[in-house]
Amino acid sequence: MRVWVRAVIVLVLCLILGGLFVHAAVTEEQRSPYPDAADLSTGYESYVGQHLMVFGTVTETGDGGMAIRVESDGTAITLRVTGTEAAVEPGGVVQVYGTLEPDRAIAAERVEVVNSSRWAEFYKYGASAVGALGFLLLFFRYWRVDRDTWTLEARDG
């Protein structure tokens, strides 16, 4: 197949993907039933009493609760989470599902610790880097780029 035909196919697919990137951002509200940090910082009172789920970075921990920083679209809001004994350090990441209360607080029904500390994040990136490197080494052991046709070809023909 001619190189230019393949280039056109790639271009079309990438344009559709680019369209999805914009579409997903524009229609985000349709897929997230809960208010985000930007919604909360502008119209907090209107969400009080509602169920919500947030992802947040733990900033403080204490007896029966913690404080988390929730971010979206460059807006950040700090919320107190009550009714949880989750084992997490500041810097860790949690998911909180619960009811929004007055004065920037969530009465938690369920708290899930995603990263218990900053180190958990490093672990994930470490394992991913090993995966990426291993994959590339393996892939190019079996495949090579044919520079005449600009296709990937099996090394053993």
Binding site: L20, F21, V22, A24, A25, V26
Partner: peptide, 17 residues
């Protein structure tokens, strides 16, 4: 324009790529 990478982790993103 608003922009989100989220479609990459969806069926649509997988099929296109």
């Amino acid at each position: 324009h608003p922009f989100s990478y989220d479609p990459l982790s969806t069926l649509g993103g997988v099929l296109l790529l």
